[in-house]
Structure formats: C-alpha cells, structure tokens
C-alpha cells in the first residue's frame, strides 16, 4: 500500500512537471492556432540560460527567472514576428509545420555546437533533497514545481478572464476577423501571446533545470510529453492541460512501476494515439473546437 501511495505521489509530482512545461504550448496553440514544434527547444534554451546564470553568478537557480522569462518572452515574440507571422496566411499547413520543425532542428544543433554532447548540471541548492512525509518521500524541487504550476494556471486564467488585454486575447483566439473589426491589433496580440507562452516555458525551465541535467536534446523528450498532455487536456485549454498533465503523470508513474520502466513511454504514447484518434478534442475539450479534424 505504501508503495502504491508513493507511486501515486510520484505520478502527481511528475504531473506538476508536465503541467508547467505544457502551459505555454497549449496557450500558443489556443490563440495563434500554431503547433510550436520548437517548444521543447525553448525549454532547452531556458535551461541552458538557467545553468549559465547559476554557474557564472553563483545565484540560486530560481533567481534566474528574472532573466530567463524575459529572454524567452523576446525569443517567442521574435519567433512570431519573423517566422510565424509571414506564414500565417500560407495556404498549405505544411509550411507552418516545417517552419517550427526547422527552428527546432536549428536550436538543438546550435546547442550541440556550443556545448557539445556533454551534460550541463545546474547546481541544485538543496532542491534535490528528499522531504519525508511519513513513509512518503518527495523532492523539495518537485513540490515547488507543483505549486508553481498551480499558481501559473490560476494566474493565466485570471489574466485571460479579468484583464482588458486578456479579453482582447480571447477575442482574437475565438474570432480573428471579428477581433480586427473591434479595432484590436491582431498581429500585436499574436506577438504578445507567443511571447507570453514562451515566458511560461522560461519559468518552467528555471524550475526544471535544478532537477534534470540539461543537454541539447532534453527538449525532444519533454516536448513529446507536452504534446500528449495538451492533446489530452484539449488544445488551447490551460486548466485542461493541468488535468491532462496529472493524468499523464499518473499513467507514467504507474505503468513504469507495474508494467516496466522501459515500456512506460510506449504506454504514454499509446494513450496519446488512442486519444488523438478517438477523441481528438481531448478529454475535456468541447466538440465545437475540432478545427483540426475533418
């Protein structure tokens, strides 16, 4: 029983991690309707920045957020402005896919060029210390991640629902043409949204860096999980992504323990495919938003 509880708790902790890396992806998709295949590389870039910040300045990795989040905001905004914007009206979707796939390939290999194949370990500052709650053990950093994920979901929802900019963003997401007719500068909203989504990834990367070694291909692993989470939660839904992340975290943890560590990815992606094919709106998405299937 204790083992089971531990496995479940591990799952929830993983869920927090998956949530925090997925929020930006689902947000960018929900608003701009672009699947950012370079999302994982944004995370990788953020983690390298965190590593640089902590090792060069000797500061706590969490403090890096003041640099990393704005840096990724700019990276995201620039990506939208220079890469996505010119392709927004491309008749063929494959052009947009190749654009971010190309960006992803370039970023992975740029990291490889700069840092080589070695692993960069961000100092943990005690974040890898296990905390014991009776028989249950979790890492301090994992608790921070879960807490931050919850706060980020709530914060983003409040921003989108309560602020005037949030209203404009939702308007653009729901009906681009009409938003333009209201006098909203749609292109600027896109740049802002991509920037915000990337800044969320920036925030995720300072939380993830102390727990996971940084390498050029770290993004590939995380981005696939993020896609799974976002599909499950319904594309564009931030609370959906959170719940989806929890579900995937639990599946990952339970299947890793009960089926076998080497097969848990197959299980996770199997679930992903079943959801994508049978219920493409996700577990919580509404049927009306099925712009991506025929």
């Amino acid at each position: 029983m204790e083992t089971f509880i531990q496995v479940v708790v591990n799952g929830l902790m993983l869920g927090g991690l998956f949530a925090i890396i997925s929020i930006g992806l689902t947000m960018i998709f929900g608003i701009i309707k672009i699947v950012n295949f370079a999302h994982g590389e944004f995370l990788m870039a953020g983690m390298f920045l965190t590593w640089l910040f902590t090792t060069k300045l000797g500061l706590h990795p969490y403090a890096a957020v003041v640099v990393v989040a704005p840096a990724l905001f700019v990276l995201g905004g620039v990506t939208q402005k220079l890469l996505i914007q010119p392709l927004m009206n491309a008749r063929d979707e494959h052009i947009q896919i190749f654009a971010t796939v190309g960006l992803s390939t370039a970023m992975i290999n740029l990291a490889l060029l700069i840092y080589g194949a070695d692993i960069a370990n961000t100092p943990a500052y005690g974040l890898r210390t296990p905390l014991e709650f009776g028989p249950i053990r979790v890492l301090e950093g994992q608790l921070f991640i879960l807490g931050a994920a919850i706060l980020l979901v709530i914060g983003m929802e409040l921003f989108l629902r309560r602020s005037r900019t949030g209203l404009a963003i939702r308007a653009v997401a729901q009906n681009r043409t009409a938003a333009q007719l209201m006098g909203i500068n749609v292109n600027w909203i896109y740049v802002l949204s991509f920037g915000l989504g990337a800044a969320c990834v920036g925030m995720a990367s300072v939380l993830v860096a102390p727990l996971y070694p940084t390498s050029s291909n770290i993004g590939t692993y995380f981005v696939l999980i993020a896609f799974v989470v976002v599909i499950l939660g319904g594309w564009g839904s931030i609370p959906g992504a959170f719940v989806g992340a929890m579900v995937i975290g639990l599946i990952d943890s339970l299947s890793g323990f009960y089926i076998g560590a080497d097969l848990r990815e197959a299980v996770v992606f199997g679930v992903f495919l079943v959801i994508l094919i049978l219920r493409p709106s996700g577990l919580f998405g509404s049927k009306q938003k099925l712009s991506h299937i025929s």
Binding site: Q96, E265, F269, I277
Partner: peptide, 27 residues
C-alpha cells in the same frame, strides 16, 4: 485512423507512432 487528422496533428500522430516503434524495438 490518422487520416482524419489534419496538418500538424497528423504529423504529431506519426511522431508518436515513431516513438512507439522505437520503444518497442528497444524492448
């Protein structure tokens, strides 16, 4: 089953299948 998915979603599904094949080949 994947043909009902459009553009990026078809691409994602093929990536997921690729991962499944890779994991199975390892297993």
């Amino acid at each position: 089953p994947c043909f009902r998915l459009h553009g990026p979603f078809f691409a994602l599904a093929t990536i997921a299948f690729l991962e499944v094949f890779r994991v199975l080949a390892l297993h």
